[in-house]
């Protein structure tokens, strides 16, 4: 029974919804309610299956908007992840080097944003970044010219880094905190300056944490919708936003489902690579 439970949950909460989306992606747009055909018909499964086809995927490949949105999403996710490593690593490193009492406090501080709604936190950034927002008010008070950050890619990166920082900092902290301090002493003993000890011992040994953090950030960022929608401009193209537009504005449910399925498949590849690498480490 215990062995079945995870599969039961996976089936109910992941596989079944995914199959619904996948079925939708094989359907065609129709003027009806809901807006697609064929509809599942338990009385005539044969006709239902024959009506399914891959036409929608053909549209995905032929219309450059999808490819562009997909590439742009990968680019934004890659740059955001790189920024997150650069910002998250020093935070995690500092936390791991603290005394055990203040460590718990710092872990709490990193997880504290989760106690408020994600949406509200993104709206807070709108209030900060908008033309007459807190940022420009501060710049004005200092006698500096205002900056136009709102509705640019820069605002999207700020939002991404802000929202995903805990997902980068915590896995990094987990590996750095576990690191045996005698290894750093051994490096110093063998003539390594603190700087070289970091680059030759601490950093290479923390790479599994970097990989875990990068995946935890990269994958959801690729599909992120709220941040580019609220902070990005009309030129910010992301696949999550495209799917939303197809679904709600164009009422093209099959296209939205096909884009979502394609996105999932492209994200499974890096996950599998990561799994392979983890298995190698364990072996």
């Amino acid at each position: 029974m215990a062995a079945i439970a995870p599969y039961l949950w996976l089936g109910m909460l992941f596989a079944f919804p995914f199959l619904l989306v996948f079925k939708l992606s094989l359907s065609d747009v129709a003027l009806s309610m809901p807006p697609y055909a064929p509809k599942f018909d338990p009385g005539n499964i044969g006709r239902f299956v024959r009506a399914l086809d891959l036409d929608t995927y053909g549209r995905l490949v032929s219309d450059p908007i999808y490819i562009k949105a997909w590439l742009s999403s990968l680019k934004i996710a890659a740059i955001s992840t790189a920024l997150l490593v650069l910002i998250g690593y020093p935070i995690a490193y500092g936390m791991a080097r603290c005394s055990s009492g203040s460590r718990q406090l710092l872990v709490l501080a990193v997880t504290l944003p989760f106690f408020t709604s994600f949406l509200i936190r993104v709206y807070a950034w709108v209030a900060i970044l908008k033309p007459a927002g807190i940022l420009n008010a501060g710049l004005h008070a200092l006698g500096l010219p205002p900056v136009a950050v709102m509705n640019t890619d820069a605002a999207v990166y700020i939002g991404m880094v802000y929202a995903y920082l805990p997902f980068m900092a915590l896995p990094l902290y987990a590996v750095l905190e576990k690191q045996d301090e005698s290894l750093i002493e051994a490096a110093a003993d063998l003539g390594a300056t603190p700087f070289r000890a970091f680059w030759t011992v601490t950093f290479p040994m923390s790479l599994p944490g970097v990989a875990a953090g990068a995946l935890l950030c990269f994958i959801p960022i690729v599909g992120e919708f709220v941040i580019p929608d609220l902070l990005g401009g009309s030129s910010t193209l992301m696949i999550g936003k495209t799917i939303w537009t197809e679904f709600f504005n164009n009422r093209d449910w099959p296209a939205a489902a096909a884009a979502a399925t394609a996105l999932l498949i492209t994200l499974v590849v890096p996950l599998m690579l990561y799994q392979r690498q983890q298995a190698r480490v364990l072996r």
Binding site: S182, E185, L190, A192
Partner: peptide, 17 residues
Amino acid sequence: PPHKRPVNMMFQSYALF
């Protein structure tokens, strides 16, 4: 500092990288 001392240590845990 430790990295400049002409002594080396074999750690109890060995501390192999």
